[in-house]
Design a protein around this nucleic acid. Sequence first.
DNA 1: TCGATATACTAAGCATGCTGATTATTAGCA
DNA 2: TGCTAATAATCAGCATGCTTAGTATATCGA
Lengths: 155, 155
Amino acid sequence: MVEIYNMAGHLVRRLNQISVAVFADRMAAEGVELTPVQFAALSAIDARPGIAQAALAGAIAYDQTTLGGVIDRLEQKGFVARQVSSRDRRARVLTVTLAGRDLLARVRPVVRDLQGDILSGLDEDEKAQLLALLKKTTDAGNDKSRAPLTPRGGI
Amino acid sequence: MVEIYNMAGHLVRRLNQISVAVFADRMAAEGVELTPVQFAALSAIDARPGIAQAALAGAIAYDQTTLGGVIDRLEQKGFVARQVSSRDRRARVLTVTLAGRDLLARVRPVVRDLQGDILSGLDEDEKAQLLALLKKTTDAGNDKSRAPLTPRGGI
DNA sequence: TCGATATACTAAGCATGCTGATTATTAGCA
DNA sequence: TGCTAATAATCAGCATGCTTAGTATATCGA
């Protein structure tokens, strides 16, 4: 028995690995090229059109530098438009394009549905319990992360 | 409210982010340069000296290609030795060096201790519950991962 | 108003984590 | 034995995720 098997860090990493793989498989089955980060960004921009990159990073708990690259790719695929803000010329203001909205409408139900597959082997009560515990501990540990959630940052 | 906030995928990714950050902070405090993957590999090689890379990948649930790079870096830092296997010239047989054993002895208690910090905001019962649920669902979803755990694969 | 400070973004560099292809070697089978 | 398939590792290439540093722009206080 390897000593890491019962460690929180190892189990969380593995579940994240499973989560990413389930997401990739479902997107491939839909014939869509979209990563979990890209979906999160697209969905959050759609919820707050005109949000700047820094605020978006805080809204979805992603590193700002990493997010820059993610937006590059979403822009290149034509799902997101990026403009210099008129109020703050440092900032880049983001909006979802028509193609992006179409994509979102299509994958949103798929993404919602796939969440259940991530937590396989658990009954509904256990899934709810796990989600509640994950929510509680991620809230408590938010500031330990290099990319904490700051839902009300900016616009 | 952004729609991803209560999704399993998002919460798991965030907890993993917290886990990685806690690990990095503790290692930095120890003055040690060691990533979670590197610790996992070192620990597993120490548990099964002479293990080959492919078997190691299965033992700690890491992608084989990624693991190759991890071993490169551990070898370069002098913590792991890599030799062509005498029984199978395709395979690279791994052992922990003396320096690697010293490092392991030093960081092992730190790594064990930091596990509690990953799951902050939970009492002992909740931590045990969360660990049990994580274990149950990662076991059930093992095959969905691109790098499933195969603890008994090869020596 | 000016100067220090803070903020938004980008760039470079490194480590993970994956896919697909390639090479070397081994194993299985007719 | 000899052909085929499988396996171990590596390489190239791409996306995340982070650190440090740099540039442009805002903000705040003396």
